[in-house]
Amino acid sequence: MTSDPAATPTSTAVRPEELTAVPVRHPGRWVAAGIILVLLAQLAHWLVTNPALNWSIVGKYLLEDSILQGVERTLLLTVIAMAMGILIGIILAVMRLSPNPIVSGVAWIYIWLFRGTPVIVQLIFWYNLPTVLKSVSLGVPFGPSWFATDPQTLITQFAAVCLGLGLNEAAYMAEIARAGILSVDEGQTEASAALGMSKGLTMRRIVLPQAMRVMIPPTGNETISMLKTTSLAFVIGYAELLTTAQIIYARTFQTIPLLITASLWYLFLTSVLTVGQYYLERRFARGSLRNLPPTPLQKAFARFSGTREGSR
């Protein structure tokens, strides 16, 4: 029997000596990075020093009252149009999955019609509807009416934008909701049925909450897209963010600075929505992930406190 410890490598945990080798060089990467940095520096220099860009004007209008009101209206339009879209979209999705051919057929035609025509056309259409629709009334079909009004007073610029964007969005949301509903395992509805749950209850309590997880990423996309689409309101002159910027540069001829002002706001708002989407996805991942991913705040905290949790 030998007493040499080196002869029994299994019993002693000696770290093997680390290799010292010259790593492969990547000169191409350095060249590419260099060229791109030079180009970026040029762009930055042009942005900062070009007097025509008038950064002081951008700064002046960024927090100007009418621009802020435009931002507020853009946000309001986004919220209303998306709320309409999601609500009507889910109803349309449930209708499309109905065994009644009339019900599913109507939903199909709605989606076909609103997806098949440009939103901008729909906006103009809703705004001009009063020219062909002389009165709106509520009553028995083909019978007496209890309430009638002139559509001119009903369809304001704001209402026309809401209708145009919301009803158009519903067609897209319907397809997103339908995909979400179909993604839920059939066993779930079977288990609900076996427990004596009605179809409506099953949809509300079991299917839709699970469909949400599939629906949220595309719905987030739609919301971000909607925020920008509200700028189409300019065709009927509703003063949201872009229209407000246009009104100002029509007067001052500072076109580019005001477009930059509007763009900075759009970028800021979409960034906020992106963060919101992350937290919403995290919330609806309950039950599908064993461990929820850490929030950026938790990650930052973990990094400061020195645990490795945040580095995953």
Partner: peptide, 14 residues
């Protein structure tokens, strides 16, 4: 009538 399924079919979000 209670029923137990081969694939459990528990509600994953609860």
């Amino acid at each position: 009538i209670g029923m137990v399924f081969q694939r459990f079919n528990l509600f994953p979000h609860m």
